[in-house]
Design a binder for these strands. Structure first.
Length: 593
RNA sequence: GCGUCCGUAGCUCAAUUGGAUAGAGCAUCGGUCUUCGGAACCGAGGGUUGCAGGUUCGAGUCCUGCCGGGCGUACCA
């Protein structure tokens, strides 16, 4: 909150700068690296001095002077001192203002976090699994990061529309159709359709890929392949028939669909993830032919080697294919249709795609094609993320080399969490199971969200379930610990909030906590700037640290008034921000653990 | 080959997008304490940020060249 105030004031303090350069300049208002420099600092003087041909310190002094004279400055901040070093402008928040702001946040349902203005309509496309196969470890990041971003942007005040763009119209269904027609085990299918369809998918995929080492390890598959040497071509034929809505394949596709949905819905339920819209690729199928025709008539796409594509980088570079030589469509086509559909129906300011970084080239091409096609001023953003790796630094696999199913991943996380909470004698078995579910799944989500999303990360149950360090379990414990005070102290939190006039920040540890509490909104703003949830986890971890330091050194329940009431208010706000922060990450909390 | 991302403490990761002395956790060592939930707190050691140049008041961050790796690269998604 103070950063915002200072930015607004700094806008008055800086002169002769074109309006469009102001935002970049204001980003140079930041927290100081060390408390001795004050609370916030501005670094804009150095850059400006160069352009103005003046000494940086003179410019800084000039800005400081104007800042100090700006209306409203004196109420919130101490008078700025002389510029430090090459020209840092350091500013310290007035204790009075700090204490009043914390008290206001305590009384506020939004915990002192302002809403954005104006709000934007933001479509977030995430998770988007291929429904033909069970969800696996590869889907966790998109699902968890996308869900967290949706929650955070929504809390910031945006109109967020979440979409699960299911893969339900691609070649994977050609594989299932091919397998179903030739290799299905009818008994198994009747008893457990999803399982049998999953088996068929995996088998046919193996046949199509025809990797020697895979076939060597699976003589049965090798035998099937020798009976069906043309499987790869036949699968594409099945896909093409589906795409032109040939009767038999379309009917089969319709019967498979619900089974596939059942499977993934169970997992979303467990993860606590919901979508405003589940619109698979298939929902755009009527638009695909029109998309291709339109691109052709506008001269953007043309025929090449039987296929139709958009040549974005000249004739010698691979084109962005929108129709295959056999007449089938590709995900490029579906994605273009989806963009047009979303623009028409939702009129978004932004569309975010939370998808694996390996598809960045696809999105570069998709966005460029959409731009040339004429999609208006919408911001199309690929929110990319890295791969989940095992201990060995290679993509996360089971010992036998299979990809890890998402369900079994969650099961193991919960099982290990159960071992952590098992020590508590007071909990019933059911309670323990519930707590373990919250902690285990929270651990998996938090481990993912606390990483810089752009890099690969190493998946480790042991690390994510540690009770110290930047983990979900530590954060959840911190919440349980803060909230425990009110039960033991018999304190009425509602009354505490309603009557909170002002808090005291006489001790440096109180002051540090107070300042940190008021940074919640800044952290959320930073998350939005680059779609990086790890900035929120880092903030929450810092906050928990400030709290621990205070709680360890200063009495709360045992303190005398007015310190007691003030510290209880600080604890109350800490607990609420930690819980809210975790909730915005899609992570639950527990009362006891 | 071309494109792209990455290389930071023994390990796993940060670093406010060019800011001040590169920070956390784990591991190691030491200290605090008559437990308001000790699953705590305080501290120490540990770094030529892959290498070499360059840009400037200032570079882990930007530019160039190397070295090493991941990923992508015409009809899968």
């Amino acid at each position: 909150m103070f950063r915002q105030a200072l930015e607004r004031l700094a806008a008055d303090g800086v002169v002769a700068i074109p309006a469009e350069e102001m935002p970049a300049l204001l980003e140079q208002v930041r927290e100081t690296a060390e408390p001795k420099f004050g609370d916030y600092s501005g670094t804009m003087a150095m850059g400006l001095a160069k352009r103005a041909g003046r000494k940086p310190r003179d410019v800084a002094a000039d800005i400081s002077g104007r800042l100090a004279a700006a209306a409203g400055y004196a109420e919130l901040f101490e008078p700025p001192g002389d510029p430090v070093g090459p020209g840092f402008i350091n500013v310290r928040v007035r204790d009075e203002a700090l204490c009043a702001a914390v008290a206001a946040a305590v009384r506020d349902d939004r915990l002192g976090v302002p809403t954005v203005h104006p709000p934007q309509t933001i479509v977030i496309d995430f998770s988007s699994p291929n429904v033909a196969k069970p969800m696996h470890v590869g889907h966790i990041r998109s699902t968890v990061i996308g869900d967290a971003l949706a929650r955070i942007l929504r809390f910031r005040g945006h109109d967020v529309i979440t979409v699960n763009h299911l893969g339900d119209w691609g070649t994977q269904f050609g594989m299932i159709l091919w397998g179903y027609k030739r290799l299905r085990d009818q008994q198994a299918y009747d008893a457990h359709p999803t399982r049998e369809l999953g088996r068929l998918y995996r088998l046919v995929r193996k046949l199509v890929d025809a990797k020697p080492e895979e076939l060597a390890a699976d003589p049965e598959a090798a035998a099937v392949l020798s009976r069906h040497p043309d499987v790869a071509r036949e699968v594409l034929e099945e896909t093409e028939k589906l795409h032109r809505e040939e009767e038999e394949n379309l009917a089969l596709w319709r019967t498979f669909e619900p089974f596939c949905h059942e499977e993934i819905d169970r997992i979303y339920g467990r993860l606590g993830v919901t979508f405003d819209h589940v619109r698979g690729e298939s929902s755009y199928r009527k638009l695909l032919a029109g998309v291709v025709e339109d691109l052709q008539s506008q001269g953007l796409a043309r025929e090449s080697r039987g296929a139709i594509g958009v040549f974005l980088d000249g004739d010698d570079k691979p084109p962005f294919l929108v129709r295959k030589a056999d007449g089938g469509y590709l995900y490029a086509t579906t994605d273009l249709a989806a963009i047009r559909w979303r623009l028409e129906h939702w009129k978004p300011d932004r569309i975010l795609y939370v998808v694996d970084h390996r598809q960045s080239q696809h999105f570069d091409q998709l966005f460029e094609t959409a731009r040339r096609w004429g999609c208006g001023p919408v911001a199309l953003v690929h929110v990319a993320f890295g791969t989940v790796l095992g201990d060995d630094g290679r993509p996360f696999k089971t010992r036998s080399g299979d990809t890890v199913g998402l369900e079994s991943l969650l099961d193991e996380g919960v099982e290990r969490a159960l071992a952590v909470v098992a020590a508590d004698e007071e909990m019933t078995g059911a309670e323990r199971q519930r707590v373990a579910e919250t902690i285990g799944i929270g651990a998996i989500k938090y481990a993912d969200l606390s990483q810089n999303r752009t890099t690969d990360y190493v998946f480790s149950y042991d690390k994510m379930l540690q009770l110290t360090g930047n983990t979900a379990a530590y954060m959840q414990y911190a919440v349980a610990r803060v909230e425990g005070i009110y039960v033991r102290g018999g304190v009425d939190r509602d009354a505490l909030r309603a009557t909170c006039g002002r808090v005291i920040a006489a001790d440096p540890r109180e002051r540090a906590l107070a300042l940190e509490l008021l940074r919640f909104g800044e952290a959320l703003e930073d998350v939005e700037a680059d779609y990086r949830p790890n900035l929120l986890t880092a903030y929450l971890y810092d906050l928990a640290g400030c709290y621990s330091t205070l709680y360890d050194a200063l009495p709360v329940l045992k303190a005398k008034e007015p310190e007691r009431g003030s510290r209880l208010a600080l604890c109350d706000l800490t607990g609420r921000i930690l819980r809210k922060g975790l909730q915005l990450l899609g992570i639950g909390t527990v009362e006891k653990m």
